[in-house]
């Protein structure tokens, strides 16, 4: 880790803070996956890892290598763009397939594909 000695203090402090907060948010998202009760609640937890954790850790890496200037910081930019584009697609598809399976099994906890929803738009089919 010899190269990190060259990092000035004003850059080292934000790098450390961003790194620690990003990994803490990631850990919180993973704890949410363990703690939440139903699948649909768990579906919210990985968003915490991708929108919070990836962004903060990639920013800290960008600051570190941008200040040191010993390599290009293209990879972090690519990873962040890629995460922003792919996460919603993954979670939407997973949610849809879970909904499809629950409906096929006639699970009473998920809303059916209702006809009543047509007549009353304000209907709220809660759990």
């Amino acid at each position: 880790m010899t190269f990190l000695v060259d990092l000035p203090v004003w850059a080292a402090i934000p790098v450390c803070l961003l790194l620690l907060s990003g990994s803490a948010i990631t850990l919180a998202g993973a704890i949410g996956i363990v703690r939440f009760q139903s699948f649909y609640e768990r579906l919210h937890a990985p968003t915490l890892c991708t929108s919070g954790g990836v962004l903060l850790i990639a920013t800290s890496s960008m600051i570190a290598f941008g200040v040191l200037q010993n390599r290009w910081i293209v990879h972090e930019v690519l990873i962040v763009i890629f995460m922003i584009v792919t996460t919603p697609v993954t979670l939407m598809l997973l949610g849809q397939s879970a909904l499809y399976r629950d409906r096929a099994e006639k699970n009473p906890e998920v809303p059916r594909k209702t006809e009543t929803a047509k007549t009353d738009p304000k209907i709220d089919i809660g759990v």
Binding site: M1, F3, L4, V15, L19, G22, S23, T26, G29, A30, I33, F39, R42, L43, A45, P46, C49, T50, G53, V54, I57, A58, S60, S61, A64, F65, L68, N70, R71, E76, I79, T90, L94, S97, A98, R101
Partner: peptide, 29 residues
């Protein structure tokens, strides 16, 4: 309990693995 929970967990394993590699990258440049 169900297959979709496992897949969600696997997706999170991928994300955390990627973040772990990023921290290794910061460590070694």
């Amino acid at each position: 309990p169900r297959a979709q929970d496992r897949i969600l967990g696997l997706d999170t394993v991928y994300i955390t693995g990627m973040l772990l590699l990023l921290t290794f990258g910061i460590r070694t440049a």
